[in-house]
């Protein structure tokens, strides 16, 4: 295997939720500003809206050979369907992050549920930026990106006039993620009983 470990994040949801945009912003921040090697890929469906949507970001301190995810460190699911479809190749000690309002049946207790869409609607006033709330949360939870760089990249990529809204959304996600106690989760999917102990 590579001497340096890869870190793999998969973003999933339905078309129109901004899944790919979130993945591109993360990849840009990690690759361009943090200076790591990064590969961002996505699945393309014929439909522009609706249907399952998937994007992946692989990052590593060394050059990346295989550009797609092999074993997921962190899976973000913004819908139940995408959670069910893309959970299968997550690492035993990987982390599942879901939109609490849209994913009701969790396949594991090693999961973090945050109501991204509800936060976007209630705190920011636009459901549209749920993807950026989620991006803030997984940016924090993964520990793989400099959060200042993430914000800088986000602001350089969003349409003029929407900077504040997007910055607030990202920050709301980060703040919400800070409340999560990762240590309280089971260490591995194989050891789910730990949580109850």
């Amino acid at each position: 295997m590579n001497s340096e470990p890869r870190y793999e994040i998969r973003f999933s949801g339905s078309g129109g939720q901004g899944i790919i945009t979130a993945a591109v912003v993360l990849a840009d921040a990690v690759g361009t500003l943090d200076g790591k090697y990064v590969c961002q890929t996505q699945s393309y469906g014929p439909e522009a809206r609706g249907g399952k949507s998937k994007a992946e970001v692989v990052m590593c301190a060394e050059p990346i050979d295989y550009p797609k995810a092999m074993q997921i460190d962190l899976l973000l699911s913004m819908t139940q369907a995408s959670c069910d479809a893309y959970f299968f190749d997550i690492k035993p000690d990987g982390l599942l992050v879901v939109d609490a309002g849209l994913v009701e049946q969790l396949p594991t207790s090693r999961a973090v549920a945050i109501p991204f869409t509800k936060i976007a609607r209630k705190e920011i006033g636009r459901e549209l930026v749920a993807n950026m709330v989620a991006l803030g949360a997984i940016g924090y939870l993964s520990g793989q990106v400099n959060l200042k760089n993430l914000e800088k990249t986000l602001l350089s990529r969003v349409p003029k006039g929407t900077e504040n809204m997007n910055r607030d959304a990202l920050q709301a996600g980060i703040d919400e993620a800070k409340k999560v106690d990762l240590a309280s989760l089971p260490r591995s999917f194989a050891n789910e009983w730990e949580a109850e102990v």
Partner: peptide
């Protein structure tokens, strides 16, 4: 190919 065409790298 579709993979190389759509993969983003720095």
């Amino acid at each position: 190919d579709e993979v190389v065409a759509h993969t983003r790298e720095c």
